[in-house]
Design a protein around this nucleic acid. Structure first.
Length: 419
DNA sequence: TCTGGGGTCCTAGGACCC
DNA sequence: TCTGGGGTCCTAGGACCC
């Protein structure tokens, strides 16, 4: 038996914890560059603000209804997330953190005769200790637990908890669930399914498995089996090793000059390398890409990427920046207005996997240097110590006009309470 | 005229997730 | 004017090997 615990409107709820006056009010959180709406409180959803909608399209609505707007504050959400997860770990023997705002719990061997009671208690504890509202679904497979969670969220009468262990309930609820809400059915598959007369989760569950496999590969087959109650997706307690580490960003405005792009690409490389070092990984290959604004119909379009093999897997920012710039030189074309660039490290290795090289002695000083830089930057602020190619003006940098303080992770931004 | 079979590795593209 | 970022998995097709 599985349980899926999912934080409601997570980012919006996080912001509300520190501004309780927003309780019951519409709240939205924006993506990087304040581009799109990526989280909405229920009140904001009720206003018709869609997930992923460009902010500029809803600005009027936001103004008219005094919607509270926040730039995303990932330091805050990450910290709140780990607080929630800590509580979940007290309530179940096995917890698999699936994303920043949800986790699967294995209920195997748990001695509760009433799982609903257990879940209600868990839900109330999270609310009391962290301030975040959660919904909980219970079912024999992960996919069904997701569906149970959907039921819990959609029907306030259940109080945010729904136990769908019984086949009878599964049948009943899947019949009411639109097929596009099933975990693993995205836009493309939903369209295809609807065109073939499959509109509910129940109809998908009862499809012929061969047809599903043909269209949706083995992934789809597993999904249908899971809907039938056959568990195909195990609980993954230990997160899998990273396969890629990336830093990609849109610019605040269009950039044309090579110098600006080089600055940006250097910064992204530095950031990704930092991430790589916290996970103690080295990369043997990297990809650099740049692209113009795909939304624009008037601008000339160009998009290209370059992959580079790194002869001696590295986590050294300076070295990696040099490779990144080489890659950028290959793909940069003057005469275009660039909107976005990114750096992706692939073929990640652990230290133990590094091949000793006859003519390449591991550079001990480089490791100490990187560690020192990381420490300084952690202490005095990001990019306090940096490589010259990262620049100083950074005029391309993203804007965050509505950013709240990092209440829980930065001493300077603690919440001030006045009596 | 007739031109194998089995395997691996790599990459690009397409789908999905949060 | 203004449209996010970071991931995963699967498949098909080409190159290459014996």
């Amino acid at each position: 038996m599985f349980s899926l615990v999912d934080c409601n409107n997570f980012y919006a709820s996080c912001q509300r914890v520190f501004e309780p006056k927003l309780e019951g009010k519409p709240v939205v959180v924006l993506s990087n560059c304040d581009g799109c709406v990526i989280a909405r409180s229920n009140e904001a959803k009720a206003l018709g603000i869609k997930m992923g909608e460009p902010f500029f399209k809803v600005k009027q609505l936001v103004k008219a209804h005094q919607v509270a707007v926040f730039s995303s504050n990932y330091a805050l959400y990450g910290d709140m997330s780990s607080r929630v997860m800590d509580i979940l770990k007290e309530y179940a023997p096995k917890v698999a953190v699936y994303s920043v705002d949800e986790a699967f719990l294995s209920l195997a061997g748990m001695n509760y005769h009433n799982l609903t009671t257990w879940a209600v208690e868990l839900k109330e504890t999270v609310r009391r200790c962290v301030g975040i509202p959660v919904s909980i679904g219970i079912a024999p497979t992960k996919t069904l637990a997701k569906a149970a969670n959907y039921v819990a969220k959609k029907n306030p009468v259940f109080g945010g908890v729904f136990d769908m262990s019984e086949e009878r309930l599964q049948q009943q609820m899947l019949a009411l669930m639109p097929v596009e809400e099933v975990w693993g059915v995205g836009r493309q598959y939903a369209r295809w399914l609807q065109q073939h007369g499959i509109t509910t989760a129940l109809q998908l569950r009862d499809m012929e498995i061969r047809a599903v496999r043909q269209k949706m590969t083995v992934v789809g087959e597993r999904m249908v089996r899971e809907l039938r109650g056959e568990s195909c997706l195990p609980l993954e307690e230990v997160p899998a090793e990273h396969k890629t580490i990336a830093c990609t960003r849109s610019f605040n405005s269009l950039q044309t000059s090579f110098v600006q792009l080089r600055e940006a690409v250097s910064c992204y490389t530095a950031r990704a390398a930092e991430k790589m070092r916290t996970k103690q990984l080295y990369c043997a290959r990297m990809q650099v890409f740049i692209r113009t604004n795909g939304f624009s119909s008037s601008e000339k379009q160009y998009s290209n990427a370059c992959q580079i093999s790194i002869p001696f897997p590295s986590q050294n920012t300076g070295e990696l920046i040099a490779y990144a710039i080489k890659a950028l030189e290959k793909i940069y074309r003057p005469g275009y207005s660039y909107k976005k660039a990114g750096v992706i490290f692939t073929e990640l290795r652990t230290k133990a996997q590094l091949q000793p090289e006859l003519f390449h002695q591991p550079d001990i000083t480089s490791e100490t240097l990187m560690a020192t830089i990381d420490q300084l930057n952690q202490r005095y602020g990001r990019n306090m110590v940096r490589f010259a190619s990262m620049g100083y003006q950074q005029s391309w940098k993203m804007q965050q006009a509505y950013k709240s303080p990092s209440y829980t992770t930065n001493w300077k931004e603690l919440l001030v309470v006045s009596a």
